[in-house]
Design a protein around this nucleic acid. Structure first.
Lengths: 188, 188
DNA sequence: ACCTGAACACCGTTCAAGT
DNA sequence: ACCTGAACACCGTTCAAGT
């Protein structure tokens, strides 16, 4: 690169960030190719770093997975916050979420687990949960959703919906139908 | 053992069957302990056989998995065939299936894939599919199920239901509620 | 026929040595 | 501070050698 380092620590930090990005890019490439196994050794090799560097940045595979899913998760949270009220708003949100879960397997894997490892993921999950609860609250008052459904139920049902769609070999053609079944089932 | 072999080939076959059972027992022990990874080397060691023997009996891990799930699958098929007509019969069947899927992760894994490796599993899946279609047919005629649902949809929705239940940490307390949501969603 | 287990490649994880 | 990569343990899979 043409830029000279200003101080050695800044240079270190910049280098560290660059190295981190290389690892994430290598990992993302694998996920995009449909491989969710995330072998640390192989990714390190792809990224041109030592294995130890992988472990320094991502102490567990789960940490790496949550980091990979972070961006998708943020977009999902943004969509949940922007969702319009009413049963239709919830349906639209679920459709968007389903699309995202189907395109990003790392997000699907992260969202399906009840606990998270990274503080950032915990925060995102709480934001999502909050958005869900607001929507639920209004929908329940409007009488469009059965009253025994919780915010966490919505997360789990979304994951189940995604799994049902994925369990077929019809190129996700069933998605809209299953979404419809779920939303009808959620009515009071 | 005290029994003497009658012919050498019979003895071989009997030994082969015994060895096979030992491997399956070792594998089952792991699944029961919550480990679905099925490492061939380790299972062979547990069973006291050479690795090659594992591969001779179960050419792929998937073959081993389907064999493990076989018994549960058979029981599920039997229940599906014995199910009573009407929406309530279908609900009861789904409840039983859900219980089975939650107790036997190998069955859950096998049923979630659209294609099977063992001929025996293919046969079981067709039997299940047949039973589902019969139930669906009657339910549709009675007007208790929406007409756009297929037998394969039932398989996939069952898998999704199981996944949604598993995605929480409430000891499957949500099972009955999610079942209710699904069955309501299936109404016309 | 069927079984054994050595052999090789690969991945997980740690940690002493480098800059 | 951060990175490297050797080292060891373990698993996947094959195949020549045994009975």
């Amino acid at each position: 690169m043409a830029t000279a380092p200003t101080t050695s620590s800044a240079s270190l930090r910049a280098d560290s960030a660059r190295v981190r990005e290389r690892m994430l890019a290598a990992a993302r490439e694998r996920v995009a190719a449909g491989d969710l196994e995330l072998p640390m050794n192989a990714i390190a090799k792809d990224a041109g770093v030592g294995v130890g560097t992988m472990y320094r940045h991502f102490p567990t595979r789960r940490t790496l997975l949550e980091t990979l899913a972070g961006e998708s998760f943020e977009m999902l949270v943004a969509q949940a916050k922007a969702a319009t009220d009413g049963a239709e708003g919830l349906t639209d949100l679920f459709r968007l979420a389903l699309q995202r879960l189907l395109t990003d397997p790392s997000l699907a894997a992260v969202l399906a687990s009840p606990t998270f490892e990274c503080a950032e993921t915990v925060a995102l999950s709480q934001e999502l949960s909050g958005a869900f609860m607001q929507l639920l609250d209004k929908a329940k008052k409007a009488g469009t959703i059965r009253p025994d459904v919780t915010g966490d139920d919505l997360r789990r049902l979304m994951c189940g919906l995604q799994y049902a769609v994925r369990s077929g070999n019809d190129d996700n053609k069933a998605a809209e139908r299953y979404l419809d079944i779920l939303m009808k089932g959620l009515r009071p």
